[in-house]
Amino acid sequence: MENSVEVKNLVKEYDKFKLGEINFEIPSGSIVGLIGENGAGKTTLIKSILNIINTNNGSINIFNKDNKQYEKVVKEDIGVVLDNMFFPENLKIKDINSIMKGIFKNWNSETFNKYLLEFKLDEKLIIKKLSKGMRKKLEIATAISHEPKLLILDEPTSGLDPVVRSEVLDIFMDFIQDEEHSILLSTHITSDLEHIADKIIFINDGKIVLDKSRDELLDNYGVLKCDDTYLAKVDKKDIVSYKKNKYDCQILVENRDKMSKKYNDCVIDKISLEDLMVLIIKGERV
């Protein structure tokens, strides 16, 4: 499979924060979810890919082209939704259509209007008057109407109610019906990603902690629930990390099936991305 995006040895240093070194790929035709705490470096990574911040090291290829050298060509094929960054909000929705016509070669007014209709957005409305959900839908409609091949979305579902969220996920699934299309989205609402993401990249404190396919992650990891005394008996090499609570103890294990045979007198649950995130960030190691 070809890659839409390849990030190699990326480093970005700030005074108090360092991102990197980061290496990963986005295969064409896939949805890649970027998860991590606020401040873990998700937005910095996205901004580096978009070349709107200056990186200290590394290279980023988008559609096999360097993202700096071929910035203009590459950006014609990218649709972007950034958190809290958009058009001046005293503009009308229909203004976006006429502005974007003068920005993207491939801007398609019909597509845009089709999405407005689908999202029940009245083109005469002023952006300022939109609710958060409507605004997000407008941002997505804007990002997708120049027929991009890659969507880069920073927190596209945060602050949305479940109904709108599922509508938004529908659009994403629709978008990747084309095998050349791919999506990179960052989020801290991990449940959105649990089913639709093909690959999950977990970033913590500026580094990639996990980069695995959804299946590998959710079918492989498990959480063993036991008490303190049992924890002492568990083989050290089976423990990825653990967290002691007041009444129980949770141990993150790999190879769930094998482990539930080995420790057949306790519960080993399937793990959600959210719990996995918590156990890796907050859990202790042995």
């Binding site: 950006k75 014609e76 950034l82 960054m85 058009f87 001046p88 909000e89």
Partner: peptide, 22 residues
Amino acid sequence: NTFVYDDYNKWNSYAATLPNGK
């Protein structure tokens, strides 16, 4: 005023992601 509006909605950051944006 156009600068103020741009600034308020972080238009410049968004614009930078567009082709030839900066």
